[in-house]
Design a protein around this nucleic acid. Structure first.
Length: 353
DNA sequence: AACCCGGGGTA
DNA sequence: TACCCAGGGTT
């Protein structure tokens, strides 16, 4: 049900308190009719999938400096993009980012389509991102539903159904409430509200522009919403990795398979990661030394404990797995975090030798 | 519909 | 520790 008074209160609050972000157009420019660049909106929204604003900002600045337009990104080598994405997580996003940029250039003349429906056909653009780009970049009245919006709706309407079962209900409530005017600002306003006032714990209901219409607050249950079905405990998986350095300083690395965990990223040769330990074979014959300690890292659905071995090998070494990456082409920042942790731990050992 | 997929900040 | 996050793809 539309609520013009609530919409006005929210937009007033947004105009006064909108968070500054590199991909946003400031209020002054917006009043002069400046629209955000669809490329920058798209890039920021993909980076923001399951990732916080604080984590995204530096990556966004780096990407737009390296590749100012979608055509620049489409022309970039895969390894360059995967390397720049390293550390941000959910690496399927980076693969789909490139696919999408190349599709925009090849199929849409280098311009993003301006409807939610057309945006939905592009790789890596789902219901949330399609609505966000349509509303923010193209001023279309699309309903944006992310974790913030789900929480705000669950509280505003005191929805007791637990997530994820409640998703359709919360989406319908958000759609019914979406106004026709200023769709992009409205979408970002609800999300800002969820991020800064209607927070998961200890919501600041006393300063909320929607406090009067909020059933959750009236019933005193806002902080307990949305309800969630319990999650499964994460199992512990074990693995071994081998870090070999050649005499010329090159490191033995692999490009991981294009799909699955850390797909398409650089990594150290090693065993599979399983709950039961696995012996495994080193990738090259050498005098392997055990690295004291272990790497601990938590993924979406398991905890990993990684045992490391390190060796210095001759120029004549012939590895059965992996490729020696020359020192000048190896940047530790190109590694996903678990692999960078392994490098850091093994490097400490090298100093002692 | 269920499952897979990172990483960091926060309480 | 557990939870949270401007979700999407695959099967």
């Amino acid at each position: 049900m539309r609520d013009p008074a609530a919409t006005a209160a929210l937009l007033d609050w947004y105009d006064a308190h909108a968070r500054r972000m590199p991909w946003r157009v400031g209020p002054d420019a917006r009043r002069q009719g400046v629209r955000p660049d669809p490329y920058r909106v798209w890039l920021s929204e993909v980076m923001l999938q399951q990732t916080t604003v604080a984590a995204v900002t530096a990556y966004f600045e780096r990407f737009t400096a390296l590749w100012p337009t979608v055509a620049d990104l489409a022309a970039a080598p895969d390894e360059a993009v995967m390397g720049e994405w390293a550390g941000l997580g959910y690496y399927a996003r980076a693969r789909n980012l490139l696919k999408c940029a190349r599709a925009v250039v090849a199929d849409h003349g280098g311009r993003f389509p301006d409807t939610r429906e057309a945006l939905l056909t592009l790789p890596g653009i789902g219901p949330y991102t399609a609505s966000a780009i349509a509303a923010i970049a193209f001023n279309r009245s699309a309903t944006v539903v992310d974790g913030n919006v789900e929480r705000v709706m669950a509280r505003r309407y005191a929805v007791l159904t637990p997530l994820p079962e409640a998703k359709p209900e919360l989406t319908a409530l958000a759609e019914a409430l979406t106004p026709e005017a200023r769709p992009g600002d409205y979408a970002q306003a609800v999300m800002d509200l969820g991020a800064t006032i209607c927070t998961p714990r200890s919501p600041a209901c006393g300063i909320c522009p929607w406090q009067e219409g909020c059933a959750g607050r009236l019933q005193g249950i806002a902080a307990d919403l949305p309800r969630k079905t319990p999650k499964k405990a994460k199992p512990i998986r074990l693995g071994t990795a081998w870090l070999a350095r050649r005499e010329d300083g090159a490191w033995l690395l692999e490009t991981r398979p294009p799909s699955g965990l850390l797909g398409g990223m650089l990594g150290w040769p090693g065993t599979e990661w399983r709950e039961e330990p696995e012996a495994g074979t080193p990738p090259v014959a050498a005098d392997w030394r055990e690295v004291p300690g272990e790497v601990r890292h938590t993924f979406t659905h398991f905890h990993l404990r990684l045992k490391l071995y390190r060796a210095d090998v001759a120029m004549t070494a012939a590895p059965e797995r992996g490729t020696f990456l020359p020192r000048e082409r190896f940047r530790p920042s190109d590694l996903p975090t678990v692999m960078r942790k392994a490098f850091d731990l093994a490097s400490d050992l090298a100093v002692e030798n």
